[in-house]
């Protein structure tokens, strides 16, 4: 379990993380979500004791990271796949990590095989593609067989094959009962991987809870309707005080169950061609919640006609 209380980090006058408190439950995959620049990486570095919090505290199973004995056996992390010396081979990189963690040499070859880098183990890490670097980083994270895993934007910049591989790997780690804390600025990615969510914006906590609650509470449910008598139906709905948005040859009905729309149509003998409940897009929900907390806004100018 990871527990942050009042975690704060200032860089000069910039506040990167602002009194952030959250818990990452053991044995679950928790997504750490926020727009770019929200303070996710800073938070993760503080969890690992790399950055010193300005105030507040973060503990892993009740202990500060620096007090962990052989920390790689408790927490594995991939914060940046490029944290390797380009002229050192993948195997040599893992060997010194293994030595520092008092692990046997054969563990290095085990994790290399696990991530599918066995055949390029003696190649210099500098020549690796991003996908291969990411695998090497995951191998390093898994080296000490830790119960807790931290990943910072693991799919960023990967090709579809790499993304799929990472996603499957996360599922596998979760199925093994490990605690996984994974950051992303892509909610759709999290929805496929995580059970719990910690959402931050501008360093502040916006939401903590399950993914399904987040989606239900934060999204607007609409129903897509197509019909040859679209205008009549729209007018009938509006007469009942329902919000309707016309969208080409269809309408979107907000906050009304599809059954209610169907019954209304039947009562007025209106033919329906389509009645399709739309799950609110996760991205919309995310933007709705974090909209005010995005650090770098693109200021869209309203056209002045």
């Amino acid at each position: 379990m990871i527990e942050a209380t009042g975690l704060t980090k200032h860089y000069g006058r910039t506040v990167a993380v602002d009194h952030l408190s959250f818990t990452v439950e053991a044995g679950r995959v928790t997504g750490f979500l926020g727009p770019n620049g929200a303070g996710k990486s800073t938070t993760m570095r503080m969890v690992l004791g790399l950055d010193r919090p300005t105030s507040g505290d973060v503990r892993i199973d009740g202990k500060h990271y620096r007090d962990l004995k052989l920390p790689l056996t408790t927490v594995g992390a991939l914060l940046d796949a490029k944290w390797v010396h380009p002229n050192r081979s993948a195997r040599a990189h893992l060997r010194w990590l293994a030595k520092a963690t008092k692990l046997p040499r054969k563990r290095v070859d085990e994790v290399l095989d696990l991530v599918g880098l066995g055949s390029v183990a003696n190649k210099n890490a500098g020549g690796f593609s991003l996908g291969m670097s990411q695998r090497l980083g995951i191998a390093a994270a898994l080296l000490g067989d830790p119960k807790v895993l931290l990943f910072d934007e693991p799919v960023n910049g990967l090709d579809p094959e790499g993304i799929l591989w990472i996603r499957r790997f996360m599922h596998r780690l979760a199925a093994e009962g490990r605690t996984v804390f994974v950051s992303s600025h892509l909610l759709s990615e999290m929805a496929q991987t995580a059970q719990d969510l910690v959402v931050i914006g501008r360093g502040k906590l916006i939401y903590q809870g399950t993914v399904s609650d987040f989606v239900e509470n934060a999204t607007e449910n609409t129903v897509l309707v197509r019909s040859p008598e679209l205008t009549r139906l729209a007018d009938l709905l509006r007469a009942d005080g329902v919000q309707v948005v016309e969208d080409g040859d269809s309408i979107r009905v907000a906050n009304l169950a599809s059954s209610a729309i169907g019954e209304l149509a039947a009562a007025h003998r209106i033919v329906l061609h389509e009645l399709n409940p739309q799950l609110g897009s996760l991205e919309e929900a995310f933007i709705q919640l974090t909209g005010e907390s995005v650090e770098y806004h693109a200021h869209d100018k309203e056209p002045t006609a």
Binding site: L48, G49, L50, Y65, R66, D67, L68, P71, L72, A77, L79, D80, K82, W83, V84, H85, P86, L97, A100, T101, A140
Partner: peptide, 12 residues
Amino acid sequence: FSTIRATFQAIP
């Protein structure tokens, strides 16, 4: 190459 971070991660 930020391997100092990997170092401090393994040896706090």
